[in-house]
């Protein structure tokens, strides 16, 4: 029973950053932007979270800094891809490179360390005990006691499903992706909607980054997003943007991520267990293509 609980909690923990980034990515997906900058936004968010938490002595300000950092990245994306009409893919690649360069540079410049920065002064995001539910046996330990951001992520998922499918903004958002010219000619500039989608994406990625550096662990390491932004992009493409589908896929990745932790110290070399999330992405891409083919037939 304990192993099961451990696996479930490891699954949820591993799923959260991917879920948050993918929810952000789904807004830009619906708005018709080929946004691959989630990785960079997450990385900058993770760095700024540590920066804020360390210097301002508050995890909450750390989260705010993370969001602000990701928003700056989104600002650059908006300036280049939306305003100057640079290719979205190229902008995304450059932005991801910029994020890696900037964070390693600042890590060295501000904290005077190479590789990773950890300090007792970094305030971590606390875990939350849900009132009422935490008292229930089994269910309490299954649902309560997670990191605050994890509950935020669940909330964000539900909210995004509502916003995208049930509100006027959501309709316009989907319109911007479906037929931008049509939307613009009906009096709503598609570029404005796209800018908003990027801002939402940055907020989500900032939260994901803050979770990586203040929730998951309490340090910043070079390139610590480790491809999670790319996996979240794969998740968005796999379910064509549906937030509920993203939730399921993220949990699946979280499960494999948790499995990685569980298999450590076993017979299998860690190098192979570390591959699992990436292999899982390939397998899910395969299953997706098989399903698509069957549907076409």
């Amino acid at each position: 029973m304990n192993v099961l609980f451990g696996l479930v909690s490891a699954m949820v923990v591993g799923a959260t950053p991917i879920l948050l980034a993918a929810i952000g990515g789904t807004f830009t997906f619906y708005a018709g932007i080929f946004n691959i900058a989630m990785e960079g936004m997450m990385l900058v968010g993770a760095f700024c979270a540590v920066l804020g938490s360390f210097f301002l002595h508050s995890w909450f300000l750390g989260i705010l800094c993370a969001v602000a950092g990701a928003l700056v990245m989104a600002g650059i994306f908006i300036l280049f891809a939306v305003k100057l009409h640079t290719d979205e893919f190229l902008t995304g690649i450059a932005l991801n490179l910029f994020a890696v360069g900037l964070t390693t540079f600042l890590l060295r410049d501000i904290f005077h360390v190479k590789g990773a920065f950890t300090d007792a002064g970094i305030r971590a995001i606390p875990a939350v005990k849900l009132p009422l539910i935490s008292g229930i046996p089994y269910l309490g330990s299954l649902l309560s006691g997670y990191n605050l951001i994890i509950y935020v992520a669940v909330l964000v998922t539900v909210l995004s499903a509502f916003v995208i499918f049930r509100t006027r903004f959501g309709l316009r958002l989907r319109g911007a992706g479906y037929n931008a010219a049509c939307l613009s000619s009906s009096g709503v500039p598609a570029s404005t909607i796209r800018i908003w989608s990027l801002i939402i994406c940055a907020v989500c990625c900032g939260l994901a980054g803050a979770y990586l550096s203040l929730g998951y662990v309490r340090l910043f390491a070079e390139n610590m997003s480790a491809g999670r932004g790319w996996i979240s992009l794969a998740a968005v493409i796999l379910v064509s943007g549906n937030p509920w589908g993203i939730g399921v896929i993220s949990l699946l990745f979280g499960f494999f991520d948790g499995l990685t932790v569980f298999l450590q110290g076993g017979r299998i070399p860690t190098q192979f267990t570390a591959m699992i999330p990436y292999v899982a992405t390939l397998v899910s891409l395969y299953l997706y293509s098989v399903r698509k083919k069957r549907r076409q037939a």
């Binding site: 280049f80 640079t86 290719d87 690649i93 490179l97 910029f98 900037l102 390693t104 540079f105 060295r108």
Partner: peptide, 23 residues
């Protein structure tokens, strides 16, 4: 100056050159 400054400079070159070409 930390050598990582070059990583930033490279990314700036990419962004500016690519955007500059379009403009």
């Amino acid at each position: 100056v930390p050598s990582e400054f070059i990583d930033v400079l490279q990314a700036v070159i990419v962004l500016v050159v690519v955007a500059g070409r379009v403009s």
